[in-house]
Simulated assay, not measured.
Amino acid sequence: MTKVLVLYYSAGGHTATLAKAVAEGATATGAEVKLKRVPDLDEGTVPKRRSPDIEVAVPEELVDYDAIIIGSPTRFGRLCAQVANFLDQTVQTWKEGKLIGKVGGAFTSTASQHGGSESTIFSILTSMMHHGIITVGLPYSFKGLLEMDEPAGGSPYGATTMTGSDGSRWPSEVELAGARYQGAHIADVAHALSAGRAFISDRS
């Protein structure tokens, strides 16, 4: 069975909401899906205050999955420090090439329509490509990307949502549908590649 990790950081709950939708989409394909969060930078030194019911991931476990989908809120047009810190701890995994041939994708939340959602996704995908991960976005077969009836997030690079400057806006049905579609699409790609992954990973 294809194993998928949906990994995220969420300060206000918006990225967490997208993450749950991504996980729902991947689960619908028959994949075994784990929803986990990256730790706060002060995890363990203060009481847990964000998503206490969601298990914290460790960098070493990334090798256990066929697909890794990472979500981060935007911080000045790039991934947040918590996700960056987590990825910075995967150097040994990178040295050993243990993520080569796996499938990956990214999603994000921003405060505004032009808040850097695409550059944030790129900043996550860049790390994935250094690991040799095969990156997958949100294709235009998801018709919600052409939605013009209301303001909506979403891009061919990954699912997105807008929170508003005060955090009062929550993911719309179109945005949640995009997250589910992306989760299913990435899981489907991982399913399709699973037979050939050993060859890809072992190629010298």
Results as ranks from 00 to 15, higher is better:
Met1Arg: 10
Val4Tyr: 05
Leu5Gly: 11
Leu7Ser: 12
Tyr8Ile: 09
Ser10Pro: 05
Thr15Arg: 05
Ala16Met: 03
Thr17Asn: 13
Thr17Arg: 13
Leu18Ala: 05
Val22Glu: 06
Lys36Leu: 08
Leu41Lys: 12
Pro52Ala: 04
Ala57Arg: 02
Val58His: 06
Tyr65Ile: 05
Ile70Leu: 14
Phe76Tyr: 15
Ala81Cys: 09
Val83Cys: 14
Val83His: 09
Asp88Pro: 00
Leu99Ala: 04
Leu99Cys: 01
Ile100Arg: 13
Gly105Gln: 12
Thr108Leu: 07
Thr110Met: 14
Thr110Lys: 00
Ser112Glu: 11
Ser112Trp: 01
Gln113Asn: 01
Glu118Cys: 02
Ser119Glu: 12
Thr120Asp: 05
Ser123Phe: 03
Ser127Glu: 15
Met129Gly: 02
Met129Phe: 02
His131Met: 06
Ile134Gly: 01
Gly137Arg: 02
Leu138Pro: 03
Glu150Ser: 15
Pro156Cys: 06
Pro156Tyr: 05
Ala159Thr: 12
Ala159Asp: 10
Gly164Tyr: 11
Gly164Pro: 08
Trp170Asn: 12
Glu173Ala: 15
Leu176Arg: 11
Ala177Gly: 15
Gly178Met: 14
Gln182Ala: 13
Ala187Met: 10
Ala187Gln: 02
Ala190Ile: 03
Ala190Met: 10
His191Gly: 11
Leu193Glu: 06
Ser194Met: 08
Ser194Gly: 04
Arg197Glu: 13
Ala198Gly: 07
Ile200Gly: 01
Arg203Pro: 00
Ser204Thr: 08
